[in-house]
Every structure is written in structure tokens, then in C-alpha cells.
């Protein structure tokens, strides 16, 4: 394996592990905590999220010149996709990263959530190739 390839794997592993740890310690993997936020009883996690956005904003302003141009733009799927995601999140308590944190905390049924997400992503890939064909400007641009 090339040195650069190994370094890339280590980088992705390191930041992934860190993210899993942080998300778990905030409580995003806990359905009870999440539900408390969604019914507006306890906004602690919402503040944590908003604070993280504010911090990132500050950093990205300082680093602005190095950041590639945004590849996210309005497309037909933005609103219906986000609605579907919001409903699903309220039901299974997992966004695409939190499911791993739920599994890490020992929640066995989260296996179903993971199967569901895999199926959903796969179905979208098929539906997109066959029917939609619009540019979704996914998170990863390569």
C-alpha cells in the first residue's frame, strides 16, 4: 500500500472515530434525548448543534480562500428529500452518522435502521438513475 493511501485511511479513521465519540457524548445516539429535543422540552443538543455551526462558520470565514466553491444548490429533491429525512429521523432517531453511535451503545434494533438506510440509499440510486436524473450535489463531490 502506498504511503499516501495509508495516510488517507488513517485520517478518515481518526476523524470518524472522533466524530463518533463526540456525537455519542453529546447524546445524539440516545432516542430519549433526541425526542426531548424534537418535542422542544430540552434544547441542549440543539444549542450544541447551533454552536458547532457558529464555530465552523468562523473557521470557514478565516479559511475561506482554501475552500472550494459550494456545489450544493437548489434542486427538485431538496424540500421533499429533507421532509422525508426529517420524518425518518423522528421515527428511528438516527441520521446517517448517529446509527453507528446507537450501535456502539449496544442498541441491537439499530441494525434494522442500518439495513433501512442501506436500502434507502440503494433505492434512491436506482430511482435517480431511472427517473429523477437531477443533480443532487451530494456531500462528497468526487
Amino acid at each position: 500500500m502506498k504511503q499516501s493511501r495509508l495516510k488517507m485511511y488513517l485520517s478518515y479513521g481518526l476523524i470518524g472515530g472522533l466524530m463518533g465519540y463526540v456525537v455519542a457524548r453529546i447524546g445524539f445516539g440516545d432516542y430519549d434525548e433526541l425526542h426531548q429535543m424534537f418535542v422542544l422540552d430540552d434544547l441542549r443538543m440543539l444549542y450544541a448543534f447551533a454552536g458547532a455551526v457558529a464555530l465552523s462558520m468562523l473557521a470557514f470565514i478565516l479559511l475561506a480562500r482554501r475552500i472550494p466553491k459550494p456545489e450544493k444548490f437548489f434542486q427538485p429533491g431538496t424540500v421533499p428529500g429533507s421532509m422525508l429525512f426529517g420524518f425518518g429521523w423522528a421515527v428511528c432517531g438516527a441520521c446517517p452518522s448517529m446509527v453507528f453511535v446507537q450501535l456502539g451503545a449496544g442498541k441491537i434494533p439499530a441494525v434494522m435502521t442500518m439495513v433501512g438506510i442501506l436500502l434507502g440509499v440503494y433505492l434512491h440510486k436506482k430511482a435517480h438513475a431511472r427517473y429523477f436524473r437531477w443533480d443532487t450535489g451530494t456531500c462528497v463531490s468526487d
Binding site: K72, Q75, G77, T78, V79, P80, G81, S82, M83, L84, F85, G86, F87, G88, W89, A90, V91, C92, G93, A94, C95, P96, S97, V99, P109, A110, M112, T113, M114, V115, G116, I117, L118, L119, G120, V121, Y122, L123, H124, K125, A127, H128, F132, T136, G137, T138, C139
Partner: peptide
């Protein structure tokens, strides 16, 4: 959980982010 997960998977791809 299965259907919630499917909605999350399909929805995030459709919206282009999560």
C-alpha cells in the same frame, strides 16, 4: 426502524445532504 431508516437513507440522498 426499518422504514424510518429507509426514509432517512432515501431522503438524505434526495436532498443531497444530511
Amino acid at each position: 426502524l426499518l422504514f424510518g431508516g429507509m426514509m432517512v437513507g432515501f431522503g438524505t440522498q434526495m436532498a443531497g445532504g444530511c
